[in-house]
Amino acid sequence: MTQTLELVATTRIERTAARRKIDLRPAVFLAPFVVLVALFTYWPLIQLVYLSLFKLNRSGPDRFIGADNFLGVLDNAQFHDAAYNSLIYIFLSIPFKVFLPIPLAVFIWTMGAKLGNFYKAALFLPTLLSFVVVSIVWIWMLNPVMGLFQSVIGPLGLQMPSLLSDVASAIYVIIGVGAWKLIGFNILLYLAGLSAISRDYVEAMRLDGAGDWVVLRRLIVPLLSPTILFVAISTVVFTIQQVFTPIDVMTQGGPLNSTTNLFYLVYQYMFESFNVGYSAAGALLIFLLLGLIIAAKMIWFEKLVHYS
């Protein structure tokens, strides 16, 4: 008897579920966004894979050439320098762009409101400036003959070194300018994260006997870790976007390939050589490289992040 009842009950539920109407409204609201993303992000990505594996032909079918484009990119005379520089750029940027803003943000956090606002505005200003403008101004500040720094140290009998024309230092100038530009923005992100930390914790730790360094290391950094992860990822993304402009304006990849990188290489393939296959292959390589970096970051960091 009970079994029959159960059977009746389940079939009734199933029928009711089938008759219940599916609510289409979320789909309708999401549709435009999904369409845009599909059209401008995912479709080009698929095309990219296609373009990297085929040779375009105006007067006939495209020819499948497999890994030829990839080999061509790897064979590029500047490829090794470009790949090496890309890694240097990303990994050296991180300490300056991700870690340096932490103590700066903490410093501003402990100031009063007025002074804090002044510093926030002053440090954020470079982020708002156009990178082209920033690059040109920095060229002129660093110029060893007429630049701002030379005019200050010249009377003291010192000579500004040729930082942008020297193979050893050019890339660090680019990294430095990029960092200078982004630090203010990351400070604001950290300040947002800090605002969620109750001052009680800091006071409790001070009474426990902690000095500034201990408070930073054992309290602020752990509680800030979700923000740090976010800043790390967004910094890598921003850095990639920014990595073209200063080089195009300041050094065009030189001197002696010391500032070229994978992104600049793809640009050159596409816009200076119109080599679609190579640039697609190069772009795909960059995509994979970044994917690896971010995956590694997420796996490694997730263990350390504390979500309260």
Partner: peptide
């Protein structure tokens, strides 16, 4: 003097237990 030099312990209203 700094708080840490005064050798005092405090129980806060919101307890201020380190969440992590």
């Amino acid at each position: 003097e700094q708080p840490k030099a005064r050798d005092m312990a405090m129980v806060f209203q919101n307890y201020a237990l380190y969440p992590h």
